[in-house]
């Protein structure tokens, strides 16, 4: 029982981090209808800036710079690359993002090399114990930070003018333009927000029990893809649900791996994708996705 609770809590915490990544992914898709394969590289960029600067600037300031840095990288990708292809087919744009991803990841892995960079967080490997259940402080911090950010984001999306502009542009860009919405700014802000959320996620992907930021960190970010897709690519609620589902399932599958030995080892890594396939078989648009995202 204790194991189950620990696994569930750990899963929720990881899931919240995946939800942060998936949320950025969904925001870009909603605002521009582009599937952003460069998302993992934005995350790596944010994590790298934080990890490199924390010795000189202190952790919190370095984190702020990392978040701002990833937002700037995201905005720069939109401004200098995606904008040049405006009007192109969405599948062409998706392939362009793959190119951007390759460029950014290559440069970042060259800089990181074989090192494992510590994010320099104040939590370290301290563990909090409630009765029989114990949980790493980093996991609690991840859960709280992600919950806070996601709530703030959803409130902004619902109530601010920025949110109204975002939703209007997502639903019908031409009509939004007729209302005076500047679509370029909407798409720029989507990329910046996605970058900032990814930088926060990068922090929590590299803290204890993970050794730190390394080349493979961007692979961990890929788990947010099944999260976004199974939730429904154009739904913020879906990103949230998808992230939590992937986190919990991964945690349970890894924790009970020995009981699932007939499936072979490493089922934890595979489980999110299996769930995604099953969900898509039943609901092709994802759990919360719009049935027919294509416009006539």
């Amino acid at each position: 029982m204790t194991t189950l609770i620990e696994l569930l809590l750990g899963g929720l915490s990881m899931g919240a981090v995946y939800a942060l990544i998936a949320l950025g992914f969904v925001v870009i898709f909603k605002a521009t209808e582009v599937v952003n394969f460069a998302h993992a590289s934005l995350l790596l960029a944010g994590g790298y800036v934080t990890a490199v600067l924390h010795d000189d600037l202190g952790f919190w300031f370095a984190l702020a710079v990392g978040i701002a840095g990833a937002a700037v990288v995201g905005a720069a990708v939109e401004f200098f690359v995606m904008r040049r292809y405006r009007g192109s087919d969405h599948s062409v744009l998706a392939i362009v993002t793959i190119g951007v991803d390759i460029l950014l990841v290559t440069e970042l892995t060259r800089r990181i090399g074989t090192r494992v960079l510590s994010p320099g967080d104040p939590w370290g490997d301290k563990v909090v114990t409630f009765g029989a259940v114990s949980m790493a402080q980093t996991r609690i911090a991840a859960l709280l930070a992600a919950a806070l950010l996601i709530t703030a984001f959803l409130l902004a999306f619902r109530y601010t003018s920025w949110g109204v502009a975002m939703r209007a542009a997502a639903e019908n860009p031409q009509t939004a333009a007729l209302m005076g919405v500047r679509l370029g700014r909407v798409s720029l802000s989507a990329w910046a927000v996605a970058g900032a959320l990814a930088a926060v996620a990068a922090l929590f992907l590299t803290v204890f029990p993970t050794p730190g930021l390394e080349r493979a960190t961007s692979l961990a970010a890929l788990k947010a893809f099944p999260a976004a897709i199974l939730g429904g690519l154009d739904s913020t609620t879906g990103a949230l649900a998808g992230g939590l589902i992937v986190g919990v399932i991964e945690s349970l599958a890894t924790g009970y791996q020995s009981d699932l030995s007939f499936l072979g080892r490493g089922i934890g890594d595979l489980a999110p994708y299996l769930v995604m396939v099953v969900v898509l078989l039943i609901r092709p648009a994802g759990l919360f996705g719009t049935k027919e995202p294509a416009r006539v």
Binding site: S161, V164, A165, R167, A168, A176, M179, G180, V181
Partner: peptide, 10 residues
Amino acid sequence: DNLRAGALGA
């Protein structure tokens, strides 16, 4: 919200 969207360019 539709009406709010109408005011975005105001």
